[in-house]
Amino acid sequence: MEYINIFNNSIREAFQGMFDKTITLESETSAPGWILSKGVAVIIGITGEKKGRVLLDMPFHTAMELAARLDPDLNDEDFALFTAAEFCNVASGGAITAINNKFGGIGLRLATPSIFTGTNSKIFSPNLKAVRMSYNTRFGEIDFHIALEGV
């Protein structure tokens, strides 16, 4: 599970860097096949020698509070979605760079983030087993579901 440790480090660094707060990994479990979204889901696909995807999931109010950390005066729902996407992108980018540096030749690359919000949203990635990393922050619960072939 070395990849997961690398993702955890990158997620903590990205959170600290963007929001000036620390977060701690509360639990690490096998993700269920169907993921019932908390409200805002950011999906970033991974290509290269191993394929996979990163899914960041959080309640809408958490995305709004994180956005307020960046700009307290801008109470904008789309800005909250973009903030969540940027957090996922920075965390995933840092992890992928670290994995590529550690395991030469693996050549992982990221697609651009896609953001989904809605009600009763269910998410499924066929043929991928994911690890759910749950963080309980002062802004609310944040889950990362990391799926990478061979992990």
Binding site: I43, I46, R53, S114, F116, S121
Partner: peptide
């Protein structure tokens, strides 16, 4: 061009951004 694995999402009142 390389492609990622697919993800399927379904629900109600969905709004999406798939690109900047």
């Amino acid at each position: 061009i390389d492609i990622t694995p697919p993800t399927v999402i379904h629900g109600d009142n969905m709004k999406a951004y798939i690109s900047q």
